[in-house]
Amino acid sequence: MYKNQMMEKFIHGLFLVLGLIAVGCVLLITVYLVISGIPAIKEIGLIDFLFGKEWAPTTSDPAYGILPFILTSIYGTAGAVVLGVPIGFMTAVFLSKLAPPKVKAVMESAVSLLAGIPSVVYGLVGMLVLVPAIRQIFNVPDGASLLASIIVLAIMILPSIIKMSITALDAVPKEYEDASLALGATPIETFFKVSVPAAKSGIAAAVVLGVGRAIGEAMAVMMVAGNVPNMPNSLFQSVRFLTTAVSTEMSYSSGLQRQALFSIALVLFLFIMMINVTLNFFLKRERT
């Protein structure tokens, strides 16, 4: 009997350890990023690092300003949201409320496919279709630009927005809609003035999830943005995002330049954590 109890205790402990692994991983990632990100920031100076407009680590008078990357990431994400959210939102309302079941089923698997396409495939198609198209239509020397990245990101966040909005819209109680219909509102008025407001937390969560996806995307953007550390002054400029800033120079950098790359990752991580907290806030509100 005593042996059995020992055994039970041991197994309980084992499962507790397994459960805590996720927590350990988060702590490990945070600690590693902070430890490896702080030294360069200290050496460069926080203000110069965050608000410096020039990134030129290999020149004789090196400059480590990451404002261009931060602004590019913000503009790129904002652009993707402006372009992707209305399309995703309208598609979700249509599929959740109006579409015949067959259309809904087909479109839902189409959206899942869009979500499953690897980001390098988006990058490849963007590189060979979108970039030349932008060059020709707008008559610019190089199509690899902020605009190309915005369009690719908008397409990539579509599935997260559509899927999550559909879940939220499907969960709206039928009684709400019936009441609105009985009062004489048309179905479309009901969907937009009753169902959508009722599902607003879920839809907000969908948008925040899309923001997270867009700001964290590296490979697709690397293939279409042109990767020159310019300030993002125009849509047709070749730009570098926070994510691509880390990966572009990682393979050959050393010393302070390499440490600065870790600092960039730390900044990106802080952005993502803020987005995660916002996402959790909306998800919690959706559940209650």
Binding site: L28, I29, Y32, L33, G212, I215, G216, E217, A218, T243, V246, S247, M250, F262, A265, L268, F269, I272, I275, N276, L279
Partner: peptide, 11 residues
């Protein structure tokens, strides 16, 4: 699940 893959790559 919210951390982007580039950060995973780095860590």
């Amino acid at each position: 699940s919210g951390i982007p893959s580039i950060i995973y790559g780095l860590v």
